[in-house]
């Protein structure tokens, strides 16, 4: 149990998500063929049940929290100060760029950059060890996956590894 406000929030968000699924995602995202034999066989049958169940659970979460049932143990929500928010934002940036760079640079070089960037974001203590790992690990993984397991690890156009 988190604080009452957050619990109500979770319930409401869940319920709204359920409504979005029921009234937007299912009608627009699922193609129903015209020759469906019976309702239970329709492609929308099961997702619709899930959507309804999600709505009911979300609503009851919100109602329970609103009336304050079951508030036995309150666990605290982790605090987010400015610095940690910045770090998280930077990390998400690293992940996004990592993904984007895999195709043009190749997985190995992109991994090295991502590794080093994370070391920088977290202000890691062991800089040298960290950098050595950042260079060695992707190379080792490439050697294993490509040469031992025969997986075509994507290579960029710039520098190709043997």
């Amino acid at each position: 149990m988190l604080s009452r406000r957050i619990e109500i929030g979770i319930g409401v968000v869940t319920a709204v998500l359920a409504l979005l699924i029921l009234f937007v995602a299912i009608p627009f995202g699922i193609v129903t063929p015209k020759n469906v034999r019976s309702l239970v066989l329709s492609p929308t049958f099961w997702p619709t049940i899930l959507g309804i169940a999600l709505f009911l659970i979300g609503a009851s979460l919100a109602v329970r929290a609103y009336f304050g049932f079951g508030r036995a143990a309150v666990k605290e929500f982790p605090s987010f100060d400015r610095a940690s928010l910045l770090r998280l934002a930077a990390f998400i940036g690293v992940i996004v760029f990592y993904y984007i760079l895999i195709a043009p640079l190749g997985m190995v070089w992109a991994s090295m950059l991502a590794f080093a960037a994370i070391l920088y974001v977290t202000r890691a203590g062991e800089r040298l060890t960290g950098l050595i790992c950042a260079i060695a690990l992707p190379l080792l993984l490439y050697a294993f996956f490509f040469h031992v397991a025969g997986v075509p690890i994507p290579q960029g156009e710039l520098v190709r590894l043997p």
Partner: peptide, 25 residues
């Protein structure tokens, strides 16, 4: 392994591993 090195390592490992499952970026 100190976490500051372990976690970026895990990230890279997961990227390689997940790619290898179905060869899909």
């Amino acid at each position: 392994v100190p976490r500051s090195i372990l976690f970026p390592g895990v990230l890279v490992l997961c990227v390689f591993g997940v790619y290898a499952v179905n060869n899909a970026i």
